[in-house]
Design a protein around this nucleic acid. Structure first.
Lengths: 240, 240
DNA sequence: CCCATACTTCGTTTACGGTCAAAGCATGGA
DNA sequence: TCCATGCTTTGACCGTAAACGAAGTATGGG
C-alpha cells in the first residue's frame, strides 16, 4: 500500500481528536456523565461534579460547548447545561462500554424527595409543581401573555384572579413586587414548566403557612404533609 | 442536590477519560480510523498513517494496546495491529458522527488491484491467493502439519507432491531452502489464510515465469494476464 | 441604587505527554 | 555466523493545557 494513500488525513479525524480530547479529562468526563441522566445542571453544580473550582469549571464548560457536546439554557443568573443531543449520549454510552462499565444506570437518579417537590429559589418545583402548573393552565386561571414564547410570561385571567383570591393569596401584594409576576419556569427534573415569579412565590409561601408542605432540614426538598395530600387532591385534582 | 452525591465519581469515569485520551491525539486518531476498514496494519504502516516516526508510533500503539483499543498479531518480524473488537469500531463510529462526518466510508478501501492479487514478501496474496489456498486444501494437496494451530504449518500430501511436480514446480529446490516449507499466512485484506513459505514463493515464481501474473511497476500489486485467467480457471477452478 | 449571586476572564504556575534520534532487541533469511 | 529489517526503549526537549485565586461582568431582587 502506498504511503501517500495511507497518510491521507480526513478533516473528520482532527474533529474526532478534539472531541475525544474534550471528553478525555476526568473533570469533564464526570460532568458529561452526570448529564447522562437527562437533567440540566448549573455551572456551579457541575463544578462540584467535576471536583474543580467554579472558574475551572467555566473553562471546561466553554470547551464542551465549543465542541457541541453540551448546550446551555440561560435562565436568570443561572446557566443550565445539558447534553447537546442524543448522539452525544450515544457516543458516551459506547465509550462507557469500552471502559468496562457495561451497564451504568443512565436513568434519572435525582433523589426521589427532590423529584417530587422542592423549592426553586422561592417557588415550588418538582413533579407536584408541574402538575399544579398544568392544572392552572387547564382551568384557564393562567393564559399565555405577551412574549410568552420568549419570556414564558403568563397573565392571570379573571377566573384565576377569583380562584387565587379564594385560596387566600394576596394578589395585590404579589403584583406590588418589582419582579415578574408569573412565568413558565422550566423544571429540570421533569423537563416541563412549572409556575415561577411573584405568583409562584406567593403560592409556595401559602402552601408552607397552611402546612401543605414542610421544608427539609438542609436541602431544597419539600415534604407533602397529610393535610397537603388532601388539599392538593381536592382543590387541584392532584393524584399521588 | 447535595454536593456529596454530585461529586461521587465512578471508576468507570476515569476509565472513560483515559480511553478518550488515547483516542484524542491526531496521530492515534488517524491510526484507529485507518483500521476501521477491518485490515490489520504493521507498526511501520501505522507510523505513516499517523504521520509520525516509527519510534513515536511504537509508543502510540503501546498506549492503544494498553487501553485495549487495538490487538496485535505477531507474524515474523511484523506486528499486525487491528481494532480490538466490534465495540471499539462502534465507539469510533459514534464519535465520527459527533465530528460531523455522518457517513464516512467504513468499507474496505484497499485499492482493488491490491485486493485481487499482490505479493506478500515473496509469495502470492490477495483474493486469488486465498482461493488458491482453499483449492489446495480442498484437493488434499496440503494437510495440516504438526503444530498447525500455532505455526500454521502444512505438509504436502503425495497427491500434492504429484500435482505441484506436474505443474513444473521444483519441490526439491524448495525444500532445500532453510525456511518454512509451507504454512498458512494470514491474508489481511481477505482475513483468511493464503499459502506462504518456500512452496508459496515457488508458486509465485512459477506463475510469473509462465506469465499468469505480471508485476505492477512500483507496487506489490499483481495483474492477472489473459493466460493467467485461463490457467487459474482450468487448473484450479477459480472464478473471476 | 446597591447588594448578592452566578459565572467568566485573566495571569501565573505546574505538569503531563508528544516528539525525535540514537541505541538496543528480536526475527528471518543467506 | 552474519546481516537486514521491524520494532521498542531511552533520554532530552518542548508545547499544550489544566489548575487556582483574584478581579471583572451580568442578572435579579430589595
Amino acid at each position: 500500500m502506498d504511503a501517500a494513500r495511507l497518510a491521507a488525513t480526513s478533516p473528520v479525524d482532527t474533529a474526532v481528536s478534539s472531541i475525544a480530547a474534550a471528553i478525555a479529562k476526568p473533570a469533564r468526563t464526570r460532568m458529561l456523565y452526570s448529564l447522562m441522566d437527562g437533567h440540566a445542571r448549573t455551572g456551579t453544580e457541575l463544578a462540584i461534579v467535576g471536583d474543580v473550582s467554579p472558574s475551572t469549571a467555566s473553562v471546561h464548560l466553554a470547551r464542551l460547548k465549543s465542541e457541541n457536546l453540551v448546550k446551555v439554557f440561560v435562565q436568570g443568573r443561572h446557566r443550565y447545561y445539558s447534553l447537546a443531543g442524543p448522539s452525544v449520549a450515544r457516543a458516551l454510552e459506547r465509550l462507557s462500554v469500552l471502559a468496562g462499565g457495561p451497564r451504568r444506570p443512565f436513568v434519572p437518579h435525582t433523589p426521589e424527595p427532590l423529584r417530587a417537590a422542592r423549592s426553586c429559589y422561592d417557588h415550588l418545583a418538582g413533579a407536584i409543581a408541574v402538575s399544579l402548573h398544568d392544572h392552572f393552565v387547564r382551568s384557564r386561571w393562567l393564559e399565555s401573555g405577551r412574549g410568552n414564547a420568549r419570556t414564558g410570561a403568563y397573565v392571570l385571567t379573571s377566573a384565576g384572579t377569583r380562584a387565587f383570591a379564594t385560596l387566600g393569596l394576596d394578589l395585590d401584594q404579589a403584583r406590588a413586587l418589582r419582579r415578574r409576576f408569573a412565568y413558565a419556569c422550566l423544571d429540570w427534573s421533569e423537563r416541563r414548566p412549572h409556575l415561577g415569579g411573584a405568583l409562584g412565590a406567593a403560592f409556595l409561601a401559602l402552601a408552607l403557612s397552611r402546612m401543605w408542605l414542610a421544608r427539609e432540614y438542609d436541602s431544597r426538598a419539600l415534604t407533602v404533609t397529610r393535610i397537603g395530600h388532601r388539599e392538593f387532591r381536592t382543590r387541584f385534582g392532584l393524584e399521588f
